[in-house]
Every structure is written in C-alpha cells, then in structure tokens.
Nucleic acid binder design. Structure first.
Lengths: 201, 201, 201, 201
DNA sequence: TATGAATGAGTTTTCATTCAT
DNA sequence: CATGAATGAAAACTCATTCAT
C-alpha cells in the first residue's frame, strides 16, 4: 500500500472517531478498529495521537481550500467573488461535517498540546496553511473595501468573524436522511448571503 | 458556608481551569487546588465532572442573559434593539472570555457525555435555558422581518448563525494588557454591526 | 431514645444493607439513608464500620441462641433434643435470612479486619459468644455419642460440619411471596432430619 | 506466551490474593505484584475485576469436577458411588482450600455485581457449569432414592444441602504444617460419611 | 444527640506508547 | 509493514472518618 493511502485511511478513520466521541474519549485502539486494523498500524504511520489530530486538521483545511481557491483566482467582481467563495466554503463544511467539527472543537488543544519536536514542526506548517487560506478571504475583502463595495473596518476582525460565521453550521446543522441536497444548497446560500451582508455597505 | 457559595466557588475555579487547559486535560484535583480545597469538597457538591461542566455552562448563559434581557425587553425599534443586544452579547463574551470559551468548545460533549440520570436532568434544564436565551434573538429578528427591517429568510438559520457570529471573538480575541477597554468597545461595535448587516435588507 | 433502641435500629439497617449489596459495597451513608438518618448518627453510636459488622454478627448469634438454648436445656433424649435444636436453628436462619447471610459471608473479614483496640475487644467477646453457642451442640452430640445414639467420630469435625449444614439454606433459599410458612417448616424439618442422619449410627 | 498460560497465571495469582485478604481488600495492583507483573497486564487479559473473580470461580468448579466426574460415571452401587464422590469432593476442597474459600465467600457478589455485558455472559456460562456439576450429585441421589438406598425427600434441598456440607471444611479447616496428609484423609472420610448419613434411610 | 461539610487515602479503570516478533 | 502483549502514568470517583455546629 502506498504511503499516501495508508495515511489517508487512518486520518479518515480518526476523523470519524474523533467526531463521534471527541478526541480525548477516542483511543487509538478505537481508531484502529474503525478501519479494521491493529493499533500498531496507526503507530507505524503516525508517531503520536497529536500528530493524528493535526493530520485531520490539515485535511480539513485542504479540502475546503480545494473548493475555494479556484473561485478566489477568478477575476469576477469582488461582491460576486466573495459570495461564491463563501458559498463554496459552507458547502465544503456541510459535505464533510465530522471532519470540520473535530477541527473547530480542538483548535486550542492543537496549539497547547504540541509537545514533540515533530509535532511542533507539523503544527507550524498547518498554521501557515491556515493563514494562506484566510488570505484568500483577506484579499477579496480588502479589495472590496478599496473598490467601495464593502464597509471600511478592521480587516482582521472582519476576516476572522466571517470565517467563524461560515463555519456556523458546524454548531447546529443536523444532517437528515431526507432531501439533504436541496437543504444544504439553501443553507449554503443563506449563510453566504448573511456573510456578504455582514461586510457590505 | 451557604450552599450557593460553595457551589459557585467551585464552578468558578472549574471555569478557570477548564479555560486554561481544556476540560479533558483538567483533573478534579487541579480544580480543587485552584481554590485551595480538597478533591473531596468538589465531589461533595458535584457528583461528576460532567455536572461541573454543566454548571459552568449554566453560569455562562446566565451571565450573558443578564446583560441582554433588559435590552430585549425595551420597546426600541427592531434595528436599534437588535444592535444593542448584539453589542451587549459581545461585550459579555469579551469580559468573561475563558468562561465562554469553555462552553463553546464543549457544546457537543455536553450532549453526548451526559450519562448519569442526574446529569441528564441538569442538561435538560440548561438546554431549556439556552433556548430561552436564543428566543430573545429569535423574537427581535422575527419582528424585524415582519416590519420590513430584516431580510426574509429562515429564522432558525438566521438566529443560530447570528449567535455563532457574536461568539466569534472566542476564537481569535487575545486580551492584551494595554488599552483593552477601548479595543473591546471597538470589537463589540464592529461585530455587532456585522451581525446587523448579516440580517438587514 | 434509649441507647438500646438506637443501636438496634442502626444494626438492623446495617444488616439489611450489608445483605443487599455486601459489606464492602455498602457505605455508611447508605446505612444511614436506610433508616432515614444521617451518617453522623451512625458514627455517634458506632466508632467504626467494623464495629457495626460485629454488631450484626452478635445479633445474629443471639437471635438463634434465644431459640435453641431453651431446647438444649431440656432433659429430652439426645436424639429428640438434637432434632429439635437443629430445627429451631434452621427456623431462625430462615426467619432472619439477611442477617445470617451477612455473618456467614464475612466470617473471615471479621477476624482479619479488627484493627482498633475497641474492635478487638468486641471481637473477643463475640468469639466467646459463638463458642458458647457451639457448645450447645457440642454437648448434645457428645452425650449422644456416649449413650450410643450417635456415631463415634471427631466431635469437633461433627459439630463444625453440623452447624454449616444447618446454615445451608443461607446459600440457596430464596424467599417467595406465596406459602412461605409451610415451605419454611418443610425445609427446617428436612434439613434437621439430614443433620440427625449425619451423626446417627 | 500462549493465551491460556497468561490467563491461568493471572487467575492463580488472583486466587491467592483473594484468599489471603478477601476480594474487596485486594487491589488489582496486588494481584499484579503477586505474579511480578504490571497492573496493565492484568487488564490486558481481564477487562474487569469481576471477570477475574469469575475466572477463579470457573477454575474452582472445574478442578473439583475433574475429580468427581470419573467416579460419577462409574457403575458402582449408589451408596458406594455417592460416598466416593463425596470423599473426592472434600479432598478437592482441602487440597486447594484458598481457591474454594474465595468462591464460597463470594457466591452472591458474583450474582449481584455482574454489571458488564461481558461479565453477564461469563456468569451465565459459569452458572451452567455449576449446574452441570450439581447434576452429578442430583443424579446419584435421585438414583439412590429410586432403588431404596436413600430417604424420600426433596431432591433439590438434599442436593443443595449436601454440597454445602461437603464444603464445610472451608469454614473451619486450618492446614497445619505437620501430618497434613493423614488428617485430610480422615476429615474427607468423616465428612463424606456424614453426608451419606444425611441422605440414607 | 444529631447533622453534614470537609478530608485524603485508596481503588478501579483507561490508554498512549513501546517493543519483540 | 503489521501485530498485539506489556507497561505505567494518570484520572475519576468512593468512602471511612473527623469535627465544628
């Protein structure tokens, strides 16, 4: 099995378990059981539990970025561009809810718990990744403020708050068996529209 | 010492510890040490660690409600009323940051981990309290939608999202020693203004 | 409330709790709750939990002795006397099952756990009481061996074994709501008859 | 090390400790220390302390059964067969006294304390094993009642009482350093003889 | 006499991590 | 690469006991 696959399988299993019971109530044994392997396999690919959590976080950022970056690179007008980016973000959240829930619930423990040299290096990398993701929004908002589409205000506060707002469904969305696709579409549209309103003049 | 005092002292110590290291990384021993008492005292007043967390959550809701309710009861126009409520909420969050951080980071564990009969009863009570707090916002938003101040959209999604947005500083605000008061004022104003924009026409 | 009553009430509550969940799984709090009092009351009358267990044991011996001694003092022929004593013993066991169960299940812990000076003194007293009870059977068996009614064999082994046999219902008798009186009568008769057979020629 | 060995080693160490101080006064740490291993090892093989106790009980039944079953399968006349079975049972008890003491002292706690799903399943298995052992005596006693060797009486009461009687040495036999073998022989003979008398015409 | 708050030692259990195979 | 036995450091929780009221 190539390196990538093994690591991704484990990361996915970890995300599922972490989302189900919380990081601290999930044992490595449980993660292994989730993917039908033994504890040893997990430790073969990840040195510590913290590294596993960081891996989940990395995946979470990458998966949303994959959707948002292409739109950010578009030359569309700021308002339209922002709206599309926001909607793509919410869609990404809704499509992979457990993954993102884990991350949001463990932002701080990620910062505090990185004890190993290895972990710290990994964390630095992820923080940079997160920053580069936030920059996508920083840029479009900044541009909108310059061209008069968006209100003049602290860009930092705006960017941070907007991202929290776009993550909001994490806290209250309960996937239902029926008509999920349309529902998600509606939620994504509404939340993105609210985000636009939050920064518009 | 009357019942209230002991329980409140313990709850406060717990909030401090939970905020510092996270709930799972905090031992009951540490909570006891924080208030210069013995582990036994904590267990005399709270049967489980989960009950202690619920107590923190209860205080958190009550303290914000105390600030917001009087404004909600005001006959001011919806837009103005909403803006003031929102600002009061953010202010409450910023003034007691650690307390509220604990709660937001552990919303789901509160739901999943309530194993004891006692805990479940307590949780039900708190869920009702939280619902009654959210109703303050539900009502003003609903009123604004009727009188044409606010956009027509799902009220549930709007209320839930707005509350997450007002909680946003939890995720990024770092209190600094200097000029905190003005800073907070500015942040509260800006976030409240963004919230208003998020629902306005 | 006179001394006797308080101590007896507590002893009875303790016996009930001990029989229900075992001595070690019963807290003093539970004993207090059983009689609608507070932990402090128990500790006012008994210095340690071990003393409480000894008190249960004392009551157990006294209550059976009360039934058996009058018969032992009778001048009836050995065979008849033994049979009546045995039957009275079994009856006593069945009438106060929980009490006696506790004692039998904790014979050794009574010996090992007596740590306090006070407890040791109490234990000595109870061991003497138990010995004097066993003597009732020792005497009748001994007499029967001399007059040719009972088999010649080690009297110690005989006495010890007979008493265990007479206690046997402790291990398997389950009181049922219906027709208990006749049932008990039958069991007492049969077990007593078996005991007689065990020592007869 | 094969599975069997580890589990058996732990069970044996547990039996020794339980017999020495009682189940409740024995910590898992002590069991581990007894066999020069770590607490973790015990928990690797047994999920709970209760399961460990059940394992001791299982061994206890199996070891006596091993001695008695071959005799029960013999075509000897009922009286002789019963006497030999009884003697074998007492011998088994005396040879492994601590083991059997543990079991008898904790018969009920085994029933009440089985909380885990796993434990309940194990308990069911053991109850069946115990029943099959008792059946050996039920059958010979029943046969003796039919062929006129034994008194007509409730077979259940007889079987239960006889087994308690055969276990009696548990309560009073103190192994001494000198001349143990002959002593045991005598005790086994006498107790078996008493048991026979208890059911004979 | 009785109460119940407080203590702190002790117990079971869990789990990340290591390592021989 | 993968397994799973073994370790040992926590951590939650219990409870006998004390003591001020």
């Amino acid at each position: 099995m190539p390196k990538r696959d093994a690591k991704q399988d484990i990361t996915k299993a970890a995300a599922i378990c972490f989302a189900r019971n919380g990081v601290d109530k999930t044992s490595i044994d449980e993660v292994a059981r989730e993917m039908g392997a033994s504890k040893g396999k997990v430790y073969h690919w990840f040195r510590t539990k913290g590294e596993l959590l960081l891996s989940v976080r990395q995946q979470s950022i990458l998966s949303v970025m994959e959707r948002v970056k292409p739109i950010a690179d578009t030359p569309a007008p700021t308002t339209e561009r922002f709206l599309d980016m926001a909607q793509a973000h919410v869609h990404g959240i809704l499509d992979d809810l457990p993954f993102h829930r884990v991350v949001v619930e463990n932002l701080r423990s990620g910062l505090a718990g990185a004890t190993t040299e290895h972990e710290r290096a990994f964390l630095t990398e992820i923080v940079a990744l997160q920053a580069s993701y936030e920059d996508l929004f920083r840029e479009v908002i900044s541009a909108g403020q310059k061209d008069g589409s968006f209100r003049q205000q602290s860009t930092s506060v705006a960017v941070n708050s907007i991202i929290v707002l776009l993550n909001a469904p994490i806290f209250w969305y309960q996937p239902r068996p029926e008509e999920t696709e349309t529902q998600r579409e509606d939620i994504a549209k509404q939340v993105a529209r609210m985000a636009l309103g939050a920064i518009s003049i």
